[in-house]
Amino acid sequence: MANIAAQRIKREFKEVIKSEEVAKCAIRVELLNDTFTELKGEIAGPPDTPYEGGTFVLEIKVPETYPFNPPKVRFVTKIWHPNISSVTGAICLDILKDQWAAAMTLRTVLLSLQALLSAAEPDDPQDAVVAKQYKENNEMFQITARHWTNVYAGGPNINKDCDDKIRRLADMGIEEHQARVALSSYDWELERATEQLFS
């Protein structure tokens, strides 16, 4: 079985390299070992989304039973998205679970993830806090997601207001990422975030 997995990954690796998406710099895969069990994936944030301009790194682990079972994929780059955990990078996507089909490939997975960044499914959330914000205060969600893209994925949009608030918490001795999480979770209200951090 392991033999099939390696054979498939070898082939798929070529498939992605040759694909037109690579030509457009939209998706990329890189091998991390020569047993074809660990790969690094990359997807570009889709245009007209808060993720635009960012590059998101993925950890891809290929199980021994691949392709009869799906690869295990997780975001390494921190991201603010209803279907992706802002803490662990775990992804809620049907094709990575019960809707996986053996004929699918890494290319399918990466393109599906890119599609997920364009169209979130807040009713099937992985991160409840993000999903709540997405549904109840979408404007704030857009700001937060864009800010995270800027800080963690190299996106171009700097948000001075967000940076200022984080600096103010940092001045109180709060670690930067911790401050960002607290502010993001409380719609960038400084008082509520502070209260939560010090309670």
Partner: peptide, 14 residues
């Protein structure tokens, strides 16, 4: 059923 030919299985790529 008519003629034998070689095809590649898209799952195991053989």
């Amino acid at each position: 059923q008519i003629c034998f030919r070689y095809i590649t299985c898209s799952v195991c790529v053989t």
